[in-house]
Computed example of a mutant assay.
Amino acid sequence: MTRQLFSRPEWVPEKGHCLRRTGVHFDAVCVSGPVAEEAADALAGASGGEPGPVVRETREAGRLYFLLPPGTACARHWPPGAVRLGGRTGVGYIGVPALDGRTWPLSWRSAPTPRAPFVDPALLHTVLCEALPGPEGCR
């Protein structure tokens, strides 16, 4: 995969991978299972091909972490099956791979770009509410 050259965000390691605390550099929404890839595909289509950073964890089949701007995950009620990490609740650590080189067991489903340094929270919310409808619907 050819990536557009740009200044690497400070929270992305130069090589390998590292843990970053949610709520500091970014918030995250974690989705597992086949719906995770379907949601990532829908997000890529809805964003014109630049959905923002999405980390794939290969040891946990089908687990994706959608990285949002810090402080934005708590602003929405996410549907069942989407786990919010960051902000006032759900603090955790996310493994972040380097942009290139050996990063197993992590990889970029889509890397941050100058145009999309983060996933758009409103767009992700819309995509996940369609993919993971809850009994009460999304708000």
Rank of each mutant, 00 (worst) to 15 (best):
R3I: 13
R115I: 00
G95E: 08
L64D: 00
P105R: 04
R20L: 09
V29G: 11
T58K: 11
L67H: 08
L124M: 09
P79G: 02
S110Y: 01
P114N: 11
E14N: 13
P133A: 01
C18Y: 12
L43K: 03
V24M: 12
R56I: 04
G137W: 04
E57H: 15
A36V: 02
D120I: 10
L43C: 07
C138W: 10
D41M: 15
D100L: 13
I94R: 00
A75Q: 13
V24I: 15
P53D: 11
M1I: 13
Y65T: 07
P34G: 06
C129W: 00
G16M: 03
E10C: 11
E37S: 15
R88W: 08
G45A: 13
P70N: 02
A131M: 08
S47F: 05
A111M: 11
F66W: 09
V31W: 07
R84L: 12
D100E: 14
D27V: 03
R88F: 09
G101Q: 04
E130N: 09
V127M: 08
S32D: 13
T126M: 11
W78F: 02
L19G: 13
D100T: 15
P70C: 05
D100W: 02
G48T: 11
L106M: 08
H17Y: 14
G52Y: 06
C138D: 04
T58L: 14
V24D: 13
G92H: 06
A73K: 02
P34F: 11
A46F: 00
